[in-house]
Structure formats: structure tokens, C-alpha cells
Amino acid sequence: MTFDGTPPANPAIDMTEEPECVAKYADGPVDPVVVVNDGMLANVFIRVTAGLPAGPYPIPSQPATIDQNGCLYTPRVLGVMVGQPFEITNSDPLLHNIKAVPSESRGFNISQPRAMTTTRTFKTPEVMVPLECNVHGWMNAYVGVTDHPYFATSAEDGSFAITGLPAGTYTIEAWHETLGKRMMEAEVVEGGTVSVTFVYGSTT
């Protein structure tokens, strides 16, 4: 996952009235919309959109996790399978509410008034389901809900890996919250590894 050119500056967040959160940032809180390290783009959601054998696929019992820490979501972008436990943690000693606003199905809106963990599941696939906190309007996260396990999110160094695909030709889609979508084809052979590189840039 690469990013060419100068990434746009991320806006600072005015968190003054949540001192517990501000204390967690040495240089002041910033909204990490576009995260680029050495030309590599993080927080991109990648998934297979075509070419997969017919499901259903086993649902992992391992939960997908998201944390609210310092009045921001970590990770900001993640994937979860339909039916897979989605574990929401609040590491801040104050109220966050988690409002999932999908357009294909009914969302949920739950609160965590103190440090605690709550588990929910998604029932309908949708890429992406935005999460928001209405107490802190700047808090945003995006959840890719899929009906198969072949998805990944690019890490801080821009890398990602989708494993366990049977041999075949696949369409792979990348999604970024502000930079949009990219599509690629990839052919996977039995037991082999294929590298794909999506290119985003300041000009596109």
C-alpha cells in the first residue's frame, strides 16, 4: 500500500474539555485521517470482492477488537465477519457511546459510561459501516463487515496479508475513507504467494 507525494495534513482536535484524554497525547491530539509512514499508507481496508468459491465460510470465534483510548478509536479501520464477535473496549474513564450507522441494516447505539468492554455482532455484510461517538463528534472508525474471511487492513507500514485463499483468480478491492477505492486482479496458485501493490497519491 503506497502513497505518492505529500500526504494532506491531519487536523488537530480541540479536546480541551476532556482532560483525561488530552493527557494521553504529548503533542496534542490529531485526527489520523491519512496515515502515511515512509510513503506507505495505513488504515486501508482490503478485501476479495469476486472469484471466491460459494460460502458459507466458518466464522472465527476469536473476536475482532476496537478500543477507545484517548478519545480516539484504535484501530480506526478494521474488518469483521458477519456473526463474529465484535469486542468494543473503552479505556477512557468517561462516557463514550458507540453508534454503528450502516445503510443496509439496522445499526446499534450503545453506551459505555466508564472503562468497560461490550460485545456485539453484525448480521448483514456491508463495507464500510461507520462508527461514531456522539459525545465526541470527532471520533470516527470504519468497520468492514464481510461474509467471508478474506479481508485485511493495512498496518502502519502499509503492509497487509490475506491468507488461506484457494487457487483461482480474484478481484481485490482497497478502500480508504478519504482517498477512495482501488481495484486489482490477482491470480493465486496452489501453495503460492502473490504480491499486490495498490497506489494512492496526493494527485489522485
Binding site: I110, P113, M116
Partner: peptide, 24 residues
């Protein structure tokens, strides 16, 4: 406010996790 309610643990996690009521 921050004390678990006596008997509150019988309530499901969607109402009162650990016996402390949720705002909703």
C-alpha cells in the same frame, strides 16, 4: 452512581453490566 446495584447482576449485559446501570 458507581456502586453495583444489589441483585443487579441478574440483569443482562445490555442493561447493567456488572450490576451498574447503563445510560440507555
Amino acid at each position: 452512581p458507581e456502586t453495583p446495584m444489589p441483585g443487579g447482576t441478574v440483569l443482562p449485559e445490555t442493561m447493567a453490566p456488572g450490576g451498574i446501570l447503563l445510560p440507555e
